[in-house]
Simulated assay, not measured.
Amino acid sequence: MGRVTVRRPVRKLTEGGQTRRADLLAAEEPLELRVGGKSLAVTMRTPGHDVELAHGFLLSEGVIASKDDVFTARYCDGVDDQGRNTYNVLDLALAEGVAPPETGVERNFYTTSSCGVCGKAALDAVKLKTRFAPGESTFAVSTEVLAGLPDTLRKQQRVFASTGGLHAAGLFRADGSLLAVREDVGRHNAVDKVLGWALLDDRVPLSDCGLLVSGRASFELVQKAAMAGVPFLAAVSAPSSLAVELAEENGMTLVGFLRGTSMNLYTGDQRVLEPDAMWAVRSGV
């Protein structure tokens, strides 16, 4: 398995002078995903939980709906220039009767750690039909629980604590407890990893959970959540306009700028339970 962190020499300059030391960086390596021996996607990711990442990716792309839809997942043999196994090619065989990924829609499946999957021919082609109905979920969370979630997530970001260079995604219950947390240099990879964990643990559809992400809420992250049946997405940063539109279309709750007791409710605010005295709506908004 590849390394999660890498040490590199650094020359640090400050007002007090300069020092040379080793700096710990978050590892970033390419992972090629194959289905039935055919290359499907290449993503730049932090090594680790690759099988979860692959399952989450195929779930969010509408290829699979349960762990039984994948027959096997195995690394392909490969070595780097030092003779070490790179573990950077993962091949999945779908179960009998499961249709392979569609090839009719023009796609650029190369993904980066920043933007995620992109390049579909048109917006209508980007939108995938969900197998589940997140809008039907009665999942709800109090503002008190929401306020504590970012700190709870940060405490479980082990690699971020040592490098400062990773995004995180966590699945949470209504009481604020975290079911699983995954980190990655790419926010979309972190989400795929945690959704893949849920799929392999037979928890999909995730109608009784929320998804918390450490960065912004993009269209793609809302779509991934919807494809897994997640009714509630909270982000510590801003959502995009398309993210809000897609969340509304799917009946999902979207919370942005979640920072302590301050947060913006963009859609589905019926799932956010507010104490009347503390969260009264002020006039003039």
Rank of each mutant, 00 (worst) to 15 (best):
Q82F: 03
N88R: 10
T86W: 02
T112G: 12
A140S: 09
V70Y: 02
V79E: 14
G119A: 04
V117T: 08
D68G: 01
E144A: 15
D80P: 06
S113P: 01
T152W: 02
D77N: 09
V89N: 06
F132C: 05
E136Q: 12
P100W: 03
L153G: 06
Q156R: 08
F71W: 06
P134G: 10
S162I: 04
V159Y: 10
A161P: 00
D68C: 02
G116W: 00
T86E: 08
L153F: 02
D69P: 02
F160N: 10
E102W: 07
S60W: 02
T86A: 01
K127N: 13
A133E: 12
R154N: 11
L92S: 05
Q157N: 00
L90T: 09
D81W: 02
D77F: 10
V98W: 09
T86N: 05
A99C: 06
A93M: 14
F139H: 10
T111Q: 09
V105D: 14
D80T: 02
V98Q: 03
G97T: 07
V79R: 15
G78R: 10
P150K: 06
T103D: 15
I64V: 15
A121L: 08
I64G: 04
L146Q: 05
V70T: 11
R74L: 03
R158V: 12
F160E: 05
T111I: 01
E96I: 04
P100M: 00
P150I: 04
A161V: 00
P134S: 01
T72V: 06
N108F: 06
D81F: 06
Q156P: 01
S114Y: 15
G104V: 07
A65V: 13
R158P: 02
G148N: 11
D68H: 10
A140G: 05
A122Y: 01
K67E: 06
G104Q: 14
D68M: 07
Y110V: 12
Y110W: 14
P100G: 10
D151I: 02
Y75C: 05
D77W: 04
E136V: 14
S66W: 07
G148D: 10
D151Y: 12
Q156L: 09
G135K: 08
P134D: 08
T103K: 11
L153P: 01
F71L: 14
T130N: 09
E102M: 05
A125F: 13
Q82I: 03
E102P: 08
S60L: 00
D81N: 03
A161F: 00
D124R: 15
K155E: 15
V159C: 05
G97A: 08
S60M: 01
L123W: 15
T112M: 02
E144Y: 15
C118Q: 14
T138N: 15
K120P: 08
E136M: 11
A161W: 00
L153A: 09
A161C: 00
N108I: 05
L123D: 11
A122K: 09
L123R: 13
A95N: 05
R84P: 00
E106H: 14
S137E: 05
T112V: 00
R158H: 14
E61G: 07
S142T: 15
L149N: 07
G104T: 14
A140E: 06
R74G: 00
N88A: 13
D68N: 09
E106L: 11
V159I: 13
L123Y: 15
V126N: 13
G119K: 03
A147Y: 05
F71K: 14
D151E: 14
A125K: 13
S114W: 04
D81K: 08
